[in-house]
Simulated scan of single mutants.
Amino acid sequence: MQQQQAGAPAGAPAIQRIAVVGTGVIGASWVAYFLARGLDVAATDPMPDAERKLREAVARHWPSLEALGLAPGASIDRLRFCERLEDALEGADFVQENGPEREDLKIDLFRRMDAALPAHVILASSSSGLLMSKVQEACRHPERVVLGHPFNPPHLIPLVEVIGGQLSSDVAVQSALAFYAAVGKKPIHVRKEVKGHIANRLQAALWREAFHLVEQGVATTEDIDTAIAYGPGLRWALMGPYLNLHLAGGEGGARHALDHLGPPIESWWADLGTPAITESLKETIRAGVEAQMEGKTSADLAAERDRLLVQLLAAKALARTIP
Rank of each mutant, 00 (worst) to 15 (best):
5 Q>H: 13
7 G>R: 08
11 G>N: 08
15 I>R: 13
20 V>H: 02
21 V>K: 05
23 T>R: 02
24 G>K: 04
25 V>I: 14
26 I>F: 07
30 W>Y: 03
30 W>L: 00
33 Y>V: 02
36 A>L: 01
37 R>N: 10
39 L>G: 02
46 P>L: 03
51 E>K: 05
51 E>I: 01
55 R>F: 06
56 E>M: 10
65 L>A: 11
67 A>G: 10
68 L>N: 13
72 P>Y: 07
74 A>L: 08
77 D>W: 02
78 R>W: 02
85 L>E: 05
88 A>S: 10
89 L>Y: 01
89 L>V: 02
89 L>A: 08
90 E>S: 07
98 N>H: 12
103 E>W: 03
114 D>N: 04
120 H>P: 00
123 L>D: 05
127 S>A: 07
128 S>L: 01
133 S>C: 06
135 V>F: 07
136 Q>S: 15
140 R>C: 08
141 H>C: 04
147 L>S: 15
150 P>S: 09
151 F>L: 14
152 N>V: 01
155 H>M: 03
159 L>P: 04
165 G>I: 00
169 S>D: 03
176 A>F: 01
188 I>K: 12
189 H>Q: 07
192 K>R: 14
199 A>S: 15
199 A>M: 08
201 R>W: 01
203 Q>Y: 05
207 W>V: 09
207 W>L: 14
209 E>H: 09
210 A>P: 05
221 T>K: 06
222 E>H: 14
230 Y>W: 13
235 R>Y: 04
236 W>I: 10
238 L>R: 12
240 G>D: 11
243 L>F: 05
243 L>G: 06
249 G>Y: 08
259 D>E: 15
267 S>T: 13
280 S>N: 14
281 L>A: 08
285 I>N: 03
286 R>S: 12
289 V>L: 13
291 A>F: 00
301 L>Y: 07
311 Q>T: 12
315 A>T: 06
318 L>C: 10
319 A>C: 09
321 T>D: 15
322 I>R: 15
